[in-house]
Write a protein that binds this DNA or RNA. Sequence first.
DNA 1: CGACACCTTGACGGGCTTCAAGTCTCGTGG
DNA 2: CCACGAGACTTGAAGCCCGTCAAGGTGTCG
Lengths: 245, 245
Amino acid sequence: MTRQPPKYEVRCQSCSISRLCLPVMLAEAEVEHLDSIVERSRPLRKGEQLFSANDAFEAVYAIRSGSLKSYTISEDGIEQITGFHLPGEIVGLDAINDGQHPSFAKALETASICAIPFEKLETLARQMPALQSQLFKVMSQEIREDQELMMLLNKKAADERLAAFMINLSQRFGRRGLSSSAFRLTMTRSDIGNYLGLAVETVSRLLTRFQSNELIAVQDKEISILNVEELSAMAGTRCHLSPLT
Amino acid sequence: MTRQPPKYEVRCQSCSISRLCLPVMLAEAEVEHLDSIVERSRPLRKGEQLFSANDAFEAVYAIRSGSLKSYTISEDGIEQITGFHLPGEIVGLDAINDGQHPSFAKALETASICAIPFEKLETLARQMPALQSQLFKVMSQEIREDQELMMLLNKKAADERLAAFMINLSQRFGRRGLSSSAFRLTMTRSDIGNYLGLAVETVSRLLTRFQSNELIAVQDKEISILNVEELSAMAGTRCHLSPLT
DNA sequence: CGACACCTTGACGGGCTTCAAGTCTCGTGG
DNA sequence: CCACGAGACTTGAAGCCCGTCAAGGTGTCG
C-alpha cells in the first residue's frame, strides 16, 4: 500500500512558482536532486514564527504560498521590519555568515514553506553549476534590493516612499501571475510604516490622500491601483515641488 | 633574467589583509589557486572609478589598500552612497544577478585593487568548498549589514546615526590593525551625510557638538575618539530623552 | 459582549532641512 | 611665488514635514 502524502507535499517539479525560485534554469534531473533535500512541513498559520533571532542556522526557506515578514529587534526592543516576502522568495540568507539567525521571520497569513538544509544545499551547489549560480544571483539580488531601499529611506519623502512601496508590491504580485492592479495587503498599516520608516498615522493619511487623488482605491486591506503612471512618477524622486493639494 | 614584477603585484599568500579577505580558511595550496586568477593593475588614484553603473559585470573586486565608496544615481541624478569600503572587503557583489553593475565604485584615496573574474571564481568555488562557503558568507554578511543600516536610517535620530557610524568605522579600522581610537576620514562630510540620510550641515553641527561634549576630537579629517562608552551608548537607540546640552 | 488590535483623523511641536553667508584649504596656472 | 577659484566646511536663521499625542471608530475573537 502506498501512503498518500499529505497534500502540502508538493514537489518542486510540480510547484507553480518554481520558475521564480531556486529551480529556475535547472535541468529536470537537477530539480529532482534539489527536491530530494527539501523538507516540507505543515503550513504556518498567521502569526507563527518560522525562525527567531539567535536560532541556530540550519536551513534557508523558500516560500511556496502565503507571505512572511522578516524583522530584527534591537537591544532596546524596537522592531525593525527588514522585508516582506512572497512566494518564490528565499528567506534566511542573512544567517549564513555566522550560523545564527540575526532576524525573525513570521507568517503574515497561512503560508507553506520549504526548508532547504543549507549544508546539503552547498554540497549540491558544488555539483550543479546552475544551482550555485542561482544562489549567488538570489543573494546578489537581495543586496541590490536593500540598496534601493536605502535610497528610498534616505532620499525620499513620505508619499514617495509609500508610492514606491505600492508599485513594488504591484510588480511582485504581477510576476506571480496575480493581478498587479488589485491585491490584498497582508501586512498591517503599522508594518508598512515600520518598514518605510514612517509613523502609522502618516501611512494612514497618505492612503487617504492617494485615494482622494484617485491614484488608488482602498477598501480596508484591499488595494486597487487606478493610476499606475502617476503613482510610478511619484515613486521616482521628486525635485522638491510644493506638495499637491 | 627574471623580470622584477612591479611592486603592486603582491600575491595573496603575502597579502597583509588576506585573513579578512576571501583566502580566510583556505589551505595554502588553495590560496595559490585563488591567487592565480586574481588580476592586479596599477593603483586607482583618488576620484578614479573602479566601475560605473551599467558597466558589464566581469569581476568582483577585493580592496588591498585604500578606501572606496560605492553609490547609485537615480534617474533624476540624485547620488546615494551605499557603502564605504576598506581593505579586505569585496565590492561588486550587487552586480552578479543581472550581469551589469547597478552602482558606481570610486576611490576615496589612492587604492590598490584585486580584480577577481567572477566566472573563474565560480568555477574555483565548485572545486574548493571553503571558498564557496566564504563567498556565501561574505554576501550574507553584506545582506545583514544592509539590514542594520536600515534600522539605523529608519529608527534613529541624527546624532545616533553619526555615533553609530563613527563606532562602526572605529571597529573596522581596529580589525585591520590600525588604531580604533584615532583615524582619518577619507570621505567628505557631504559623503557621510549622503550615506546617513542627513544634510551636510547636520553632520557638521553634530561633529562640533560631539567635540564640545568631549566624545571625540576633530581636526579636519582626523578623528580621535575620546569616550567610546558614551559614543557607543548613543549609537544604541535612545528612548527619547531630552537632548544633551 | 467586552477586550483588544487595527485604523483614522485632528492638533501641535520639534528636529531636521533649506537657505544664506562667510571662512578655509588646496590645486592650478599665470 | 602668489593670485584665484572651486570645493569643503562651518555657523546662523527660518520654516516645514512628519512624529507624537489624543480621541474615537471599526472589526474580530474568545
